[in-house]
Simulated scan of single mutants.
Amino acid sequence: MTTRDELLAAAAEVFERDGYVRATVDDVCLRVGVTKGALYGHFSSKKALAVALVEAHALDWARARERLLRVHRSPLQVLVDLGYAAEHAAVRRLLFQSPVCDEVAERQVAQWRSTVHDLLRGAAARGELRADADLPASTEGIVSELVGVHLVAMAVDAADAAARGLDRVWRSWLPAIVRPEVWARLRLGPPR
């Protein structure tokens, strides 16, 4: 693991524990055992560190999508599993609770929207969706509910809040747009 990776991992812990405003670069450096100079050699500021953490998570999420597409035949199962892969408490706090959200939340939500739409379009091409499924409306609804799940999970601060919320999203949206025989085969819980 490089120093940059160690700094990102430490920042995730510190941002999750303290939030963006209370987190300090001193706390991040202390966790890694480096000087502020070493941190500033990789990141120009605490904000740049936070943005890099969110961007690293977005890249991990995109890689997870590609891996899941190789594992699952159904784009809908990929969609369900990606919902769980998006769960990252520090990133959630950065996106929806800090000044960083002004910079990156819109890009992150746009990535979610594009991914959900692509997966629904793939499911439609495979004949997995009902004939009357409205892809744009379903995309917007699912993404809005995913954002809501993250906001509620942050507000209640319970370890399983996001997973329970995701289960509700899938159980409310998917039966309305997915063919019954496909719905019966989907695993709605987190991947094991």
Rank of each mutant, 00 (worst) to 15 (best):
S114V: 12
S144F: 07
A123P: 11
W173K: 03
M154N: 14
R121K: 04
A125L: 11
L146W: 12
A124M: 09
L186I: 09
W170D: 10
L151A: 05
A153I: 00
W183R: 15
V116M: 02
A123E: 06
A158R: 14
M154E: 15
V169L: 14
H117S: 13
R126L: 14
D134R: 06
L186C: 11
T115Q: 08
P175N: 06
L120V: 02
S172T: 14
P180L: 06
G127S: 02
S172H: 14
A124T: 03
A159W: 00
R187P: 10
R164T: 00
R130C: 06
A133H: 10
I142N: 02
A110L: 12
A176L: 15
V152Q: 06
D132W: 03
P136T: 06
L129V: 09
W183K: 08
A124H: 06
R164G: 00
G122S: 04
L119Q: 03
A159E: 15
G148T: 11
V156S: 04
D132L: 02
I177P: 08
L120T: 12
L129S: 04
D134P: 09
A133K: 08
I177H: 08
A162M: 10
E128F: 03
M154K: 07
A131P: 04
A123G: 13
E128A: 04
I177R: 09
L146E: 05
A123C: 05
A124K: 05
D118W: 10
D160M: 09
R164P: 00
S144D: 03
R113D: 14
A153R: 10
A161H: 07
I177N: 06
L151S: 09
P136D: 09
V143Q: 00
R126A: 14
R113E: 13
I177K: 14
A158S: 12
P175Y: 10
R187C: 11
A110F: 05
S138M: 13
